[in-house]
């Protein structure tokens, strides 16, 4: 699971949970793999992100590096910044671990990079 994907996930489907976002991350194995930098893609995805969630997720697993905590106004022209964002979004992967519901503490396993968000009947 890349941190871009983490940015989209919630546990709100759990009975009694209102927002379920952002999910906490307990990372047991992390893989960092270089992927091709596409500045145009990073520019298009940044407005869709919840930046706080991204930064906190990266920080919680020790990979925020020198990624700025808040987005500056003219990030569009800052190639170094876009490269840092690319790295955190697409190159840091949680292979094994857990996602944790912020309200109920319910854990969702991440195995071989795949989070399992399925619920039991009595949790719906």
């Amino acid at each position: 699971m890349k941190l871009l994907t983490h940015n989209m996930l919630t546990s709100k489907c759990l009975k009694g949970v209102n927002v379920g976002y952002p999910l906490g991350i307990v990372a047991k194995d992390i893989k960092v793999l270089e992927t091709e930098f596409n500045s145009e893609f990073v520019l298009r995805i940044i407005p869709k992100l919840d930046w706080d969630t991204l930064w906190n997720a990266a920080d919680s697993i020790g990979h925020s590096g020198d990624l700025p905590r808040t987005l500056c106004d003219d990030y569009e022209n800052d190639v170094e910044f876009l490269k840092k964002a690319h790295h955190v979004l697409l190159e840091v992967e949680v292979i094994n671990g857990e996602l944790v519901c912020p309200e109920s503490g319910r854990k969702f396993a991440i195995n071989k990079g795949i989070p399992n968000m399925l619920l039991n009947e009595d949790e719906l």
């Binding site: 699971m1 989209m8 996930l9 489907c13 379920g20 968000m117 399925l118 619920l119």
Partner: peptide
């Protein structure tokens, strides 16, 4: 990227 879920139930 792959996620196990029922339809889009875990999508924020």
């Amino acid at each position: 990227e792959v996620v196990t879920m029922d339809l889009m139930s875990g999508f924020h």
